[in-house]
């Protein structure tokens, strides 16, 4: 038996509806510190909704979500507490176009963590170097390629020094030749021991870094396993079908 304390994220019997539509059904998920989880499944299966519940971009109606020991409810203090510790990278980057790359990265540390500007800038430069674009620091997001923007978005999240990173299809909006540069950054991050929940269809990435792959369909977690077994020996026929479609070409 593992103690509750060992889990950085716990979802217990989480249910969510959009109006009448039951989008998440009895979701149970425990994430250990340092664990790397890849979530896949057909479009509309609720993957985004699930990870967006973790930082309360979506509200769940039933069940408990505990992040880093904080119970997620409607208490604004708890929500703020959790968002500080949970970074998120979106499909469409969601960088702030009116701010430079550097300002994008220092905004939250300065205003949320109350960090002095100098210090925030030093940290931002450190992470921009890690994602290999320190030379773009004073440009605006609109002047960068998609791959560069997504790397800025990753750096921006890292600047808050989060304990968990959520990725929602970070490479889906990118041209093929830019996918690799973003995945490389993510692989590095994984190897450094960052706890990651990553919705992606990049199965190569899953095989390479995931400790666990979760397959969702119709708002449920259908199957979860180590990547090795997940890909070579899927248990459910739904998973098999999905894998044949994704890996087929």
């Amino acid at each position: 038996m593992t103690n509750q304390q060992d889990f950085i994220i716990t979802l217990k019997n989480v249910n969510k509806w959009y109006g009448e539509f039951h989008v998440l059904k009895d979701i149970n998920l425990n994430v250990k510190m340092g664990e790397r989880i890849v979530i896949c499944g057909p479009s509309g299966s609720g993957k985004s909704t699930m990870i967006r519940c973790i930082n309360h971009l979506e509200e769940h109606q039933e069940g408990d979500i505990v992040v880093d020991g904080v119970l997620l409810n409607n208490d604004l203090k708890n929500i703020g507490q959790i968002r500080k510790e949970v970074g998120m990278v979106f499909q469409h980057f969601n960088l702030f176009p009116h701010l430079t790359v550097l300002q994008n990265c220092t905004l939250a540390p300065i205003w949320v963590r109350k960090m002095p500007q100098k210090e925030a800038e030093a940290i931002a430069m450190k992470y921009l170097e890690r994602v290999k674009i320190p030379d773009q620091a004073n440009k605006y997001p609109g002047q960068l390629s998609g791959g560069q923007q997504q790397r800025v978005a990753i750096a921006r999240s890292l600047c808050m020094n989060p304990r968990v990173m959520l990725f929602d299809e970070p490479t889906s909006a990118l041209d093929p030749e830019m996918i690799k540069e973003v995945l490389d950054v993510m692989v590095e991050l994984a190897q450094e021991g960052m706890t990651m929940l990553c919705v992606t269809h990049e199965m190569g990435f899953a095989k390479k870094v995931a400790d666990r792959v979760i397959f969702m369909d119709a708002g449920q977690i259908i199957e979860e396993n180590e990547p090795e077994s997940f890909f070579n020996n899927p248990q459910s026929d739904r998973t098999k079908l999905f894998l044949s479609q994704v890996l087929g070409h």
Binding site: R83, K84, F90, N94, F96, A108, S157, M160
Partner: peptide, 15 residues
């Protein structure tokens, strides 16, 4: 403004 701008700010923990 796209919804993403609001979500980006929310996700960073801005009030």
């Amino acid at each position: 403004l796209s919804k993403g701008q609001f979500e980006g700010a929310d996700a960073l923990g801005l009030s």
